Simulated assay, not measured.
Amino acid sequence: MTGGDAVRDPSFDRPVFILSSPRSGSTLLFETLSQAPGVFTIGGESHQMIEQVAGLAPRDRGFDSNVLEAQDASPGRVDALRRHFRAALRDRDGLAPPAGPVRMLEKTPKNALRIRFLSEVFPEARFIFLYRDPRSTLASMIDAWRSGRFVTYPRLPGWPPTLPAWSLLLVPGWRELASRPLQEIVRTQWQVTLERILDDLGALPAGRWTAIDHARFLADPGAEVKRVCAALELDWDRELGPRLPLSRYTLTRPDPDKWKKHAGLIEPLLPGLEPTVARARQVLAAGGAGQARPPET
């Protein structure tokens, strides 16, 4: 749909989806980019908007996972989702979009498992891959599970009631985690999600996505936002200070060493994550598009 003679999407002009594992800072990036002029959002995450459509909720799919594939985008589901999203969109001033195609920004961690599906629903979709150091991310995921504030499936069939209620996104193979300690559950959530993002983005044409490092974003938010907006052809008209406000889902104030309180749980996991980390860092070093395939050996 990007060629000169291609038919353009009449409702969604290159909608942008932020992709990351849970607890990677996606809310902060979303809240910042939502201040771009001409950008419209639904105001939050799209869990219910997607899962209310018949056949798309885990309960309709044997509670397999949050994965949705291209073949799940039947005409009826595509039409329903597009209508739901369009009706909920508002800009930074709270105004509904005018007639015609609009730039939409969306972020829901579950959607990291739905890239192929989203590409069918929104043929002009663009993506931002947000990466955060796994030590900080895993520590924050552990805290999220323990807090009870991020429960997604409180009565997940087959999940032992003696364990904390299932939190964050539902990854393939979750049933095999029922006997594992919490740090291994979040490790699997993180690694499965990152590998899925990298695989699916690597299959997209060049120019459909860009990448951003969470630490670099915090260190120089103004420059990083301008870079991402330029890559996605979004306007930007605001100056950002050296420190951004806390996002709405912050549990405790950010600290680069905060993960160390869980160091005894996390450090043994790191060697097994090295291949995924190497892939992600290769993408960041290359600046994004076309670099998500596994590194050469």
Results as ranks from 00 to 15, higher is better:
Asp220Val: 12
Ala263Gln: 12
Ala206Arg: 15
Glu176Gln: 02
Gln48Asp: 15
Arg114Asp: 05
Trp236Ile: 00
Arg155Pro: 00
Arg126Ser: 01
Met1Ala: 10
Val171Lys: 01
Val16Met: 10
Asp79His: 13
Met141Gln: 12
Ile142Met: 14
Met141Asn: 08
Asn111Leu: 03
Gln71Lys: 15
His47Cys: 00
Phe40Leu: 01
Ala99Tyr: 03
Leu234Thr: 05
Leu118Trp: 07
Arg149Val: 00
Pro256Met: 08
Asp143Gln: 08
Tyr153Asp: 07
Leu244Ser: 07
Ser24Glu: 13
Gln48Pro: 03
Arg61Leu: 02
Arg187Ala: 13
Asp72Glu: 05
Ala87Met: 10
Trp259Gly: 00
Ala144Leu: 02
Trp236Val: 11
Ser140Gln: 14
Leu232Lys: 15
Pro181Glu: 13
Asp93Ser: 08
Val277Ala: 13
Ala80Ser: 04
Met141Trp: 12
Glu184Asn: 04
Ile128His: 13
Ile50Lys: 04
Ala6Tyr: 14
Tyr153Leu: 05
Val283His: 05
Gly264Tyr: 07
Leu170Arg: 07
Gly43Gln: 04
Lys261Val: 15
Thr276Gln: 05
Thr108Trp: 10
Ile266Ser: 03
Ile212Lys: 13
Ser11Ile: 07
Arg149Phe: 03
Gly241Tyr: 09
Gly44Pro: 14
Leu284Arg: 10
Phe17Cys: 06
Pro97His: 06
Arg175Tyr: 06
Pro134Val: 08
Glu120Arg: 15
Thr2Tyr: 15
Glu267Phe: 10
Glu267Tyr: 10
Leu33His: 06
Leu95Lys: 12
Gly62Leu: 02
Phe30Lys: 09
Leu130Trp: 14
Glu176Thr: 05
Phe127Arg: 12
Trp209Lys: 15
Thr162Lys: 01
Lys260Leu: 12
Leu269Ala: 13
Lys258His: 14
Leu29His: 09
Pro254Lys: 13
Phe63Asn: 07
Arg238Asn: 00
His214Leu: 11
Pro109Gln: 07
Thr188Gly: 02
Pro172Cys: 01
Ala219Glu: 07
Arg14Gly: 00
Lys110Val: 06
Leu284Met: 08
Leu138Lys: 07
Ala206Tyr: 09
Ile266Cys: 00
Gly25Asp: 14
Phe129Asp: 06
Leu163Lys: 13
Gly202Gln: 08
Asp200Ser: 05
Ser74Ala: 13
Arg238Met: 12
Gln189Ala: 11
Gln48Asn: 15
Glu267Ser: 10
Ala139Phe: 08
Pro101Phe: 04
Val78Phe: 03
Gly290Ser: 05
His47Glu: 12
Glu31Leu: 10
Asp213Tyr: 14
Asp257Thr: 12
His84Lys: 10
Asp199Thr: 15
Arg23Val: 03
Ser20Arg: 09
Leu28Tyr: 07
Ala292Asp: 05
Ser140Gly: 09
Leu118Phe: 01
